[in-house]
Design a protein around this nucleic acid. Sequence first.
DNA 1: TATGCGTAGT
Length: 703
Amino acid sequence: MAAAKATASASAAATRVSAVFRSNQELTRLARSGQLAAARRLFEEMPRRNVVSYNAMLSALARHGPLADARRLFEEMPRRNVISWNVMIAASSHHGHVTDARELFDAMPARDDFSWTLMVSCYTRAGELGLAREVLDRMPGDKCAACYNAMISGYAKNGRFDDAVTLLREMPAPDLVSWNSVLAGLTRNEGMSLSVQFFNEMPEKDLVSWNLMLEGYVRAGDMESANAFFARVPSPNVISWVTLLNGYCRAGRMNEARELFDRMPERNVVAWNAMLAGYVHLSHMEEAYKLFMEMPDQNSISWTTMVSGYVHAGKLQEAKDVLNKMPFDSVTAKTALMHGYLRSSRIDDARKLFDGLVVRDAVCWNTMISGYVQCGMLDEAMVLFQQMLNKDMVSWNTMIAGYALYGQMRKAISIFRKMNRRNTVSWNSIISGFVHNGLFVEALQHFMHMRRDSKRADWSTYACCFSACANLAALHVGRQFHSLLVRSGHISGSFSGNALISFYAKCGRILEARQVFDEMERQDIVSWNALIDGYASNGNGADAILVFQEMEANDVRPDEVTLVGVLSACSHSGLIDEGLHFFNSMTKLYSLKPVAEHYACMVDLLGRAGKLREAFELVQGMHMEPNAGVWGALLGACHVHKNHELAQLAAEKLFQLEPRKTSNYVLLSNFSAEAGNWNEAEKVRFLIKERNVHKPPGLAGST
DNA sequence: TATGCGTAGT
C-alpha cells in the first residue's frame, strides 16, 4: 500500500518535472525567436518554475526587453546559478553598460568559462582591448578556446593583426573559430590581397572561411571575383548564396540579383529579406511590395525594410500604414519613421513616436538628438543627450558637430574633452568645427593631437586641413599635408582632392591646383567649380572661362556655384560683356535661376567698371530681398568710386542685416574719413562702441 | 531545457 503510494507520488513528480521541462523548452524557443510578449505570458502562467525557467525568461528579457526588467527579474529570482549571472553580464554587455557588466562579474560567487569569455568580449566590443586582455590574462587554470578567440577577434576587428596573430600562436590549441576570427578582421579591414594570402596559409578551413572570403570580394565591390570565387566554394550554403545576392543588390544589378535569387536551391527569410532590401535600396517600392506579399513568412526585419523603404521614397503615409499593420514591436522600424518625420521637419511627430517607445536603442536616441541638432534646437538635444544612459560614439559626435555648426565651440570642446575614447569622426567633428568657425590654427593643432591619439585621418580630416591651410595661406604646411595624404592612400577620393584644388588655388598656385585636378581619378562638379573659382580668384578670368567651356565640352552640367565662379571671374578680370552675357543667359542656357550670390557678383562687376547706377538699378530690380553680400559689393564699389551718397544707403542696409559685423562699420568709417567727413567717421566709431560690436570671436555664443 | 568566440538580411 505504502509502496503503491510512493510509486504514485513519484510518477506525479515525474509528470510535474516533465511539464516544467516542456514549458522551459517552449520558453526558450520564444526567447530565441524574439517573441517577448508570448514568453512573458507563458512564464506568468507556469504553475511551477525552476532555475532554468527563470534563466530562459531572463535571457528573453536580456535580449529583447528593457534592461531594467531583466535586472528586476534577476533580483527577484528565488535561486541563481552561474548561468543567471552570465546572462546578466551578457545583457549589460549588449546594452553597452560595461561598468555594470564588470560589477556583476566581480560580485558573482563563482565563475565558469562563459563568465570569463563574456567579460573579454564585453571589453573588446567597447573597444577596451587593454582591459579585455587583463581579464584574459587573469583567467585561472586552462583557458578555454572561446576566451582566447574573443580576444583574437577583438584585436582583428580593431585592425591589430600583429597582436591577433601573436595570441593565435600563443594559444595551446587554436581552432577554426580562431583562424576565422583573424580572417574576418583581414577581409573587413585590410583588403583582399592579404586575405587571400592568409586564407591560403590556414591549416584548416570550413564553410565560414569560404564565406568570409566571398564577403570580402563583395565588400570590395569586385563582383566578377566574387562570382568566380563562389564557383569554387565546395558546397555553398544559404549564407554563401545570400552573400553573393547581396553583392549584386548593393551594386544595383537587380536583374542578376533576381536571377540568382530564383536559382537558389534554398531560400530562408534572410534570403527573401536580402532581395527585398535590394529593391527597397533603389526605391523600387512596387517590386518590393510584390515580393513582400509573396514571402512565405515575414519577420520583423522584412516589415522594417518595407517601412524604411517607404520613408526613403518619401512616402510617409505608406510607411505609417505598414508600421501600424506590423505584428512586431520594432524600435528600428519606428526609428525609420522618425527619420522620415525629421526629414520633413515634423519634429513633434518624431518626438511623439520617440516618447511612445518602451525600449529604445542608441540609434533611436541618436536619431532624435540629431533631429534636434538639425533644427538648431541644441538645448533640447542636450537634454536628451544627458538623459541617455548608453551613449555611443555617434551620440557624442553628434553633439560636438551640432555645437560646432552653430558656432558654440566652447561647448563642442567641452564635450570632446569629456569623451573617454574618440574615433576618427570625433576628431573630424572638432577639427571641422574649428575650420567652420575660422579657428584655423586650432584646427591644425588638433590634427597633430589626433596623430598622437593614433587615430587614422580620412579624406574628411584632410579636406578640413587643406581648408585651414588655404585660409591661413600656409602653402608650406599644406604641402606637407599633401604628401601625408598621398602616403595615406586617400588621394583618389574626390572630396580631399577638391579641397586640395581649392587650397593650391587660394595660395595662388593655380598650376599646382590644375595638376591635382588632372591627376584625380574622377572629377565631379565640385572639382570643376573649385578650379574655375581658383582661376577667377587669381585674376585669371579668361582661363576660368576656358575651364568652364572645357567643362561643358565634357558634358558636365554647371550648377549655381559654377556660375558664381564664372561671374566672379568676369568681374575680377573686367570682362563686363562676358559677365553680362552669362548672367543674362543663365536661366535660358542652364535652367539656373540667379540667386543673391549671382547678383552680388554682377554688382561687383558693374561697380568695378564704375557703372554704379546700373549696379544700383540691378539691386532694385532683384526678385528677392538683397542680402548682405549684395549690399557689401555695392558698398565696396562706392568706396572705390567715391560715391558717398550711395555708400550711405548701402551701409545702412548692411547695418540692418549684420548689426554685429565690425568690418561693415570699419569700411564705412574709413570711407567717411577718407572723404574728409570726420564727423561721419566719428559717428560710426561711436556706433561701434554703442552697439558693443566686437570682432567676431571664434568661440562666439558659448556663454 | 538556460549563458560565450568566427559568416548572410534593417
